[in-house]
Design a protein around this nucleic acid. Structure first.
Length: 478
RNA sequence: GGGGCCAUAGGGUAGCUUGGUGAUCCUUCGGGCUUUGGGAGCCCGAGACCCCGGUUCAAAUCCGGGUGGCCCCA
């Protein structure tokens, strides 16, 4: 059994905005368009999510750094494709006090042009590589489209970007695969389903040789790009003079990759697991994993409260983040709704009956199922976490798969898109034909499916009917 | 990229056409008494016309501009 998902399914946009505010994630009333305030509860989720990616990146030998937010125009404009891709969406700092600056500064929209002049100084020989570093911080983009909390921001506050340099193209290719593995683990642990596509050339990162992207599917049928991995080859190293002495003693340009994830992970976490009662958090990133609500009864009040705190301590001893909600003015029912809205995976109730019989009443947020267990069997809570994770993951994957339609006719593709589906079809690989597909179905060609794709052998292109080379994914996007 | 709608207490609304003491129900917050196994009841209290300019004796209301929000189409 699960709580209803009617509003979530039918009126997603409203549901999302409401939950973000009422659950205490963001305050959207900050007086600048596209900028929002992280509230304490949202900030805790954000911290746990960034800790998770940090842990994985460290395990894969990445080192963390922090670069300045301002980039001089002279560096920013060096790479022709890059500036072309970003010039219409950067914020400029043009003045220092009343003086006009000689060299204007951009608020970084991404940090390649901040990192790479330093790479040129740091890298001297093949022994300095692979160089793998990352940072977590804000980037700024002057979005002209409709801004949305966590989805389309003017300040992306949680941009987790990694930059690497390598002594060979092969090693950069290996790094692309490693980055994909890192992101797969990250999203898997958050129970977020995704597809992995190689973006078409006309939609790759400005300055990259190619771009691989992770997309998930939202309840309204639109896809959301949640991570990208770029092979930069030698494009940036040539403009930023990042050279190294190779084994043969020759100077060579470095091979580079970069990859990033934004606040959209948290948007997905909220959107994909929630229901009409609010959030449902994956236990690993829930600021409170177990909330304990005392059910007071006349003369037993103090003993029951005491028991609650004993349980909390025992839970903390076995590594569970627990909280006792002992607010006096709010009745238990109101507390239940509030913690459900916030997505706390497990609630424990301790009332007079539990007190007498040394039991606790355990309620799961995902299924709302209530059971009573012995108060000495707290290890069982960990099993319940595992079950919640598994259940959320299965449910999200089912939703994801339900949204995908396999199509071999362009009219049918158009129809499916209209019905809020994500389309998979075969494609000849020609750019002209690909753009024609986008025009015809009024959606974006997300790219060539890299994982879980069907063989294109003997298949025909969905549009031109010539020999197909790849399976592609087409969708309306955020 | 194009078009439309909107802004009044923490949230949701009425008032605006026809300028004249800013109201309402539901809610939020503070205080008090009774309560507590799924959103408690009663009493008392707090809190608002988005910003800048114009018209006017007088602007929430009319006019201009700005900022912010939402929706539809491409």
């Amino acid at each position: 059994m699960h709580a209803k998902r009617e509003k979530w399914a039918n009126n997603f946009s409203e549901w999302f905005n409401e939950v973000i505010e009422t659950a205490g994630i963001l305050d959207v009333r900050y007086p600048v368009k596209g900028l929002y305030v992280w509230l304490p509860y949202g900030f805790k989720i954000r911290r746990l999510v960034t800790e998770l990616i940090r842990e994985i990146l460290y395990r894969y030998d990445h080192e963390e750094v922090l670069f300045p937010i301002l980039i001089p125009e002279t560096e920013f404009a060096k790479e022709a494709q890059h500036i072309k891709g970003f010039e219409d969406q950067v914020y400029w700092v043009t003045h220092g006090g009343l003086d006009e600056l000689n060299v204007k500064l951009v608020l970084r929209p991404t940090s390649e042009t901040a990192f790479y002049p330093m790479f040129a100084l740091w890298i001297r020989s093949h022994a300095d590589m692979p160089l793998k570093i990352f940072q977590i911080g804000s980037v700024f983009r002057y979005e002209t489209k409709h801004t949305r909390p966590l989805i389309r921001l003017r300040e992306i506050t949680t941009f987790k970007e990694a930059h690497t340099a390598h002594a060979s193209y092969e090693d950069a290719e290996r790094q692309v695969k490693e980055a994909i593995a890192i992101y797969k683990e990250f999203f898997d642990r958050l129970a977020i389903p995704y597809s992995i596509c190689r973006r078409p050339d006309w939609d790759k990162f400005p300055g990259a040789e190619y771009t691989v992207a992770f997309d998930t599917i939202f309840p309204d049928g639109r896809t959301l790009q949640i991570a990208t991995v770029h092979n930069l080859a030698q494009n940036f190293s040539k403009t930023f003079e990042i050279t190294f002495e190779n084994i043969k003693g020759e100077q060579e340009y470095a091979y580079q990759t970069c990859y990033g994830i934004s606040d959209r992970v948290i948007a997905s976490l909220i959107a994909l697991h929630g229901d009409d009662r609010g959030l449902i958090l994956v236990p690993e990133v829930s600021p409170i994993q177990v909330v304990i609500v005392p059910i007071w009864y006349k003369d037993k009040k103090e003993e029951i409260t005491e028991r609650c705190f004993e349980i909390k301590e025992k839970l903390e001893k076995i590594g569970i983040r627990a909280h006792v909600d002992d607010r006096e003015k709010i009745r238990p029912g109101a507390k239940f709704y509030e913690w459900e809205l916030k997505g706390i995976p497990v609630r424990i109730e301790i009332g007079p009956k539990d007190f007498e019989e040394n039991t606790i009443t355990v309620c799961r947020r995902d299924t709302l199922e209530k059971i009573r267990i012995n108060a000495d069997e707290l290890e069982k809570i960990k099993d319940i976490f595992a079950e919640i994770y598994k259940n959320l993951k299965n449910r999200a994957h089912e939703e994801f798969n339900k949204r995908i339609s396999f199509v071999d006719d362009i009219e049918e593709a158009k129809k499916c898109i209209k019905e809020k589906k994500v389309v998979r079809a075969f494609w000849c690989g020609e750019e002209e034909c690909g753009k024609e597909i986008e025009d015809k179905v009024e959606a974006s060609l997300l790219g060539i499916l890299l994982e879980g794709s069907r063989s294109a052998e003997g298949m025909k292109c969905v549009n031109c009917k010539k020999e197909a080379k790849y399976e592609i994914q087409i969708a309306r996007t955020y």
